[in-house]
Nucleic acid binder design. Sequence first.
DNA 1: TCTTTATGGTGAG
DNA 2: TCACCCTAAAGAT
Length: 260
Amino acid sequence: MRRALGGRVAQSVFFAFPRLKPYQSRLSGVRVTSVRARGKAILVGFENDLVIYSHNQLYGRWRVFKNGDLPDTGRQLRLAIQGPTRSALLYSASEIEVLKREALATHPYLSKLGPDILNQRVGVRGLGARFSAPEFANRRLASLLLDQRFIAGIGNYLRSEILFAAGVHPERRPRDLKPAEVARLASVARGLVWQSYRSRGITNDLHRAARLEAAGRTREEFRFAVFDRAGEACFVCGAPIRRQILAGRRCYFCPACQPL
DNA sequence: TCTTTATGGTGAG
DNA sequence: TCACCCTAAAGAT
């Protein structure tokens, strides 16, 4: 999106929602000055200090196309930003707003977000300190890692995968962890989210994933270490992977590698 | 043609 | 924690 739109004049902006129609003319012909992510939200900033906020929730999807070649998706087009040569199109999402730049600081979602784990606003040491902060130290890790006010950017599959890679049971709490475990958790969290970003969602050990791929396994079979693998053998110790609902979402872990 | 599930989030209790 | 919101796809009938 940044390559297609960043620094370029939006030729046209389309909104499907009637309440946003008035902004079409206010944004068309205006230069895009920034495209960025804050947690799970996407912000597209314009030179006139208006910002398009969107959140994909579980079903929204951004696609970038060359101008003219229109997609055959059966999904609902909700927003289109046409650049000089390419357009960014948002399908299915229902959370779309246009804000003034100064309203970002008080936005109900954005204003509560913790440091974004991909945006390098906090180092591994700072992350470790955050686990131990009084308002977080007593929470179960399964709940904490999904809380965007704690750290922004971790989602449900990363939660399971981070805890497995760190060797920590999802029901443990920061205040009961050894300092070395906190440090490992912080380091693994940062490292695994980056790996997932670069590899388009592979959170399994990359060597292990490569071996499995070479052995003919599908992407879904080598992508995760524990997520979606309930009952299957742990890649490390062979114990059956367990699935448990925690903080309202399914969480996967190895009971042997991640003792309580 | 239904019902359920989902890499997410809010508000009530 | 739960009910609910939202859309699309998968699963069940």
